[in-house]
Simulated assay, not measured.
Amino acid sequence: MSEKQQKILYMCTVGGEDAEKASICIGLANAALALEEDVSLVLMGKSVYLAQKGYTDHIHQAGERAPLKKLMNDFMELGGKLLVCKPCIEERNMEISDFIEGSELATGTTLNMAILESDKQLTF
């Protein structure tokens, strides 16, 4: 565990169409949570589907990486904060009720505040 807890913001912009990149993003977020850091995962663009109930059930990454469903479940169980871009879901005619428990809607203001308050940001 680090001496000072870091606030790390992971921003994901890909979904099942690039499962490798999505799994790297979520896997790194999970590793930071295991180090007891304060981690938020922002889903923007196509990545909003990753939080949709049932979406990750059948997406498996080739190789030794964990399936996206497990990565998402682990993220939530480890206490990560999941922010889903509100304009992105509105563009796709989705509702917050379509998403896994613990998902939070994020507006442009919310996302900018999360960026400003974080110590580190990574975008995938």
Rank of each mutant, 00 (worst) to 15 (best):
L82M: 12
T56Y: 01
N30K: 03
S40P: 14
A51Q: 05
L122P: 09
D57M: 04
E64S: 14
K69V: 10
M113L: 15
A66K: 11
L83F: 13
R65N: 05
D38K: 09
Q5A: 09
N73I: 05
K81N: 15
E91W: 12
G15M: 05
G16D: 10
C85P: 05
T107I: 00
K46S: 11
A51T: 06
C25M: 04
V39L: 03
G45R: 10
H60R: 11
S2D: 11
C88H: 04
I100M: 12
A32T: 10
G108Q: 10
L33M: 03
T123S: 08
V42W: 12
N112P: 12
I115D: 02
L35G: 04
F124W: 14
E91A: 15
G108F: 12
E17H: 04
S40I: 11
Q6E: 15
A34Q: 10
S97Q: 11
L41W: 09
K46T: 06
E17W: 04
Q6P: 08
E101S: 10
A29T: 01
I115C: 04
E37Y: 03
K70N: 11
E37N: 15
L78C: 02
L116E: 00
R65S: 09
K4C: 08
P67M: 01
M44C: 13
K4V: 12
F99S: 04
L41E: 13
L50N: 02
F75T: 06
G16I: 05
L28Q: 14
E37A: 07
K21P: 03
I100V: 14
I96D: 10
G16K: 10
E64H: 13
H58W: 05
L43H: 07
P87A: 03
A34C: 08
